[in-house]
């Protein structure tokens, strides 16, 4: 398969994935808008008014970036984990496996689908947030690069989860028991400077903290973490997950007998 044919194959997978989640937008795009809207109402307006300022910003302005990124993380992960697992379950993954499409194009294609859903939901949630507060953008380049890299990272993680998953339970265990706690403890609702030293150090082991802080920097110019450390960690995770994903597909784990 030459480069232009590989490009066509990549485009095909991304379009297929895009049409898949758009076809079921009531399940994929609408719910995070409603959930995040509720967060804005409860934590932003009702409770936030009593909390006062965080790091010198209104509480709602402080939590908006984290809530947007949380939606991006969960949706990009959910897209690849459900789509890839369903492709295994219905065996339509075989459509790609029997073709000359290389495995790295399959990984990139599914990742592209996850990024697309993450970003579309990100835009939708940002639009909802504008009902509740006026958004200021401190650094658009940081904002866009961090949201895209984060969506990439969690799309890859979703594929790995789906490759190992043997039942529908297996695709909900990691989002429920690992992803959600890490996201909530990643500094969406608070600055880690509020924590005792010990818990600050524990928090530093949470990779989501680096993403949320870098993303918040893009909006309000404030971060608990050095920006270059955030970028390095996110990129390192992406490379590691991509290579791992590729290795699993090349070995046929969970797909070939």
């Amino acid at each position: 398969m030459n480069a232009s044919q590989q490009w066509i194959a990549l485009r095909t997978i991304i379009i297929k994935e895009f049409l898949r989640f758009i076809r079921i937008w009531k399940q994929t795009v609408l719910p995070p808008m409603i959930t995040t809207g509720l967060y804005f109402i409860i934590f932003g307006n009702l409770i936030g008014e009593r909390i006062g300022e965080m790091e010198g910003y209104r509480y709602i302005d402080f939590i908006v970036p984290g809530l947007i990124l949380m939606a991006v993380i969960t949706q990009s992960y959910a897209n690849t984990v459900s789509s890839f697992y369903m492709a295994k379950f219905q065996r339509n993954i075989e459509e790609m496996m029997v073709s000359p499409t290389p495995n790295y194009i399959i990984v990139l294609g599914y990742t592209g689908g996850g990024i697309a859903r993450g970003l579309i939901v990100g835009v939708a949630v940002t639009t909802v947030s504008m009902i509740f507060t006026q958004l200021n953008i401190h650094n658009i380049a940081v904002l866009l690069s961090i949201v895209t890299l984060t969506a990439t990272l969690f799309s890859l993680a979703g594929i790995i989860n789906a490759i190992y998953a043997k039942t529908f339970d297996d695709i909900s265990i990691i989002p429920t028991f690992i992803l959600t706690p890490l996201t909530y403890l990643g500094g969406i609702f608070y600055s880690i400077t509020l924590l005792p030293n010990f818990w600050q150090n524990v928090s530093l082991a949470n990779p989501i903290l680096y993403m949320i802080n870098a993303f918040r920097y893009g909006f309000i110019g404030v971060s608990d973490i050095n920006l270059s450390i955030s970028y390095s960690i996110i990129i390192a995770f992406i490379i590691a997950l991509y290579l791992f994903c590729l290795r699993l597909l090349n070995k046929g784990v969970g797909i070939r007998s």
Binding site: S4, T12, I13, I15, A87, Q90, N92, E95, M96, T101
Partner: peptide, 23 residues
């Protein structure tokens, strides 16, 4: 071994795409 929720024309067009055939 196909996605039962996909329209059949899309299934075919996607399959061609995996072989590098323009849309």
């Amino acid at each position: 071994n196909f996605n039962v929720w996909e329209p059949i024309e899309e299934i075919l067009v996607n399959q061609a795409g995996y072989y590098g055939i323009e849309r």
